[in-house]
C-alpha cells in the first residue's frame, strides 16, 4: 500500500537523507552466516560459520587466501565476495611484481572500499552484497579490517559480521582486552568460542566452522580438519575449567560495559553504520 518511493535505485536519496538500496545491501550481509575475526600482537584469526543449504550439499566456502600475508572472511553474497577476492589477489600480485614486497593491508582495504563506494554512486550499478573481514600483516603488525557494501571500512581488534553475529560480538567485547597478549592457540580458541555463540542450536563441530590463521612467521592458512578437531576438543576441556571464572568475569564486565552501550543506542546508530 505505502510502497517506499525512494528505494528503487541506488542513487536516489530519501528525504530523510538515506540511500535505501545501500542499506538493503548492508542488510544482505546480515543474512549470510557469521564470519568472525580477531587479532593479537602477532596473529590474526579469521573464522566462519558454515551452513550447508541442504543435507545433500556441501557448504559454501567463506574463508579465502588473498596472499601469504592477507586473508578474508566473508558474510553475505559469497558470489560477490569472490569477485572482490579475485580483485584483491590481483592487486597483491601486481604490488609484489613491482616492489617485490607485500602490499600493506590498509591500502588494499582502502582500494576495495573505493571500489564498493563507486557502486553506491552509479545508477547502472548495484552495491556489493557482501561484508568482508580482512585480516593481514604488514610492516606495522597484524591488522583486522571490515569492509561494507556502503564503501565504509573500519579497523578492529575483533569483530563479527553476518547472522547472529551479535552473540559473537558480545563474547568478543567481553574478552577483547586480553587478546593483544594472547598466543596463537589461545586466540584460535577465542575465535571458536565466538563461533559457538553465533551457532543456532547446533553443536560446534568441524562440519559447521572453519578457522584460518596468519601471523608473524606464519603465512595465511586454513586449519585442516584434524587440527581444527584438536582445537574443538581442547575447547571442551577448557570450558569446564573456565566456567566459574567466566561467570564471575561477565558479571563484573557486564556492569562496567553495559552503561556506555545503552547510551549509544539512545542516539540510534547512523543508518549506514554497523
Amino acid at each position: 500500500m505505502f510502497r517506499n518511493q525512494y528505494d528503487t535505485d541506488v542513487t536516489t536519496w530519501s528525504p530523510a537523507g538515506r540511500l535505501h538500496q545501500v542499506e538493503y545491501a548492508m542488510e544482505a550481509v546480515k543474512q549470510g552466516s557469521a564470519a568472525i575475526g580477531l587479532r593479537s600482537k602477532t596473529h590474526v584469526i579469521l573464522a566462519s560459520v558454515n551452513k550447508a543449504t541442504s543435507e545433500l550439499s556441501s557448504y559454501q566456502r567463506k574463508l579465502f587466501k588473498v596472499d601469504d600475508h592477507i586473508g578474508i572472511a566473508m558474510a553475505g553474497l559469497t558470489a560477490d565476495g569472490r569477485v572482490l577476492s579475485r580483485y584483491m589477489r590481483s592487486e597483491c600480485i601486481n604490488h609484489k611484481f613491482i616492489y617485490e614486497s607485500p602490499l600493506p593491508v590498509g591500502r588494499l582495504v582502502v582500494q576495495v572500499a573505493d571500489k564498493a563506494q563507486v557502486c553506491t554512486q552509479r545508477s547502472w550499478k548495484r552495491p556489493y552484497g557482501v561484508g568482508l573481514l580482512v585480516g593481514g600483516l604488514d610492516e606495522t603488525g597484524p591488522h583486522l579490517y571490515q569492509n561494507c557494501p556502503s564503501g565504509n571500512y573500519y579497523e578492529y581488534q575483533a569483530f563479527a559480521i553476518g547472522s547472529r553475529s551479535q552473540a559473537a560480538k558480545t563474547y568478543l567485547e567481553r574478552k577483547f582486552e586480553t587478546f593483544m597478549t594472547c598466543s596463537r592457540d589461545e586466540l584460535i580458541r577465542h575465535a571458536l568460542f565466538a563461533v559457538k555463540e553465533s551457532l543456532q542450536d547446533e553443536e560446534l563441530s568441524i562440519t559447521n566452522c572453519s578457522v584460518a590463521v596468519l601471523g608473524i612467521g606464519e603465512p595465511f592458512n586454513i586449519l585442516d580438519l584434524k587440527s581444527l578437531q584438536g582445537f574443538i576438543d581442547s575447547l571442551e576441556e577448557k570450558k569446564e575449567a573456565e566456567v566459574e571464572t567466566v561467570v564471575a568475569d561477565s558479571e563484573q564486565a557486564g556492569a562496567d560495559a553495559e552503561a556506555p552501550v545503552a547510551e549509544d543506542q539512545g542516539d540510534g546508530p547512523a543508518p549506514m553504520e554497523t
Binding site: Y99, S101, T140
Partner: peptide
Amino acid sequence: MWDDGNTLGPKEVHNYLCR
C-alpha cells in the same frame, strides 16, 4: 600521502627501478 606507517625501503625502490 597514505600516512599509514608503511614506507618504501631501498629494496622496494630498487625493484621498482628495475621494472
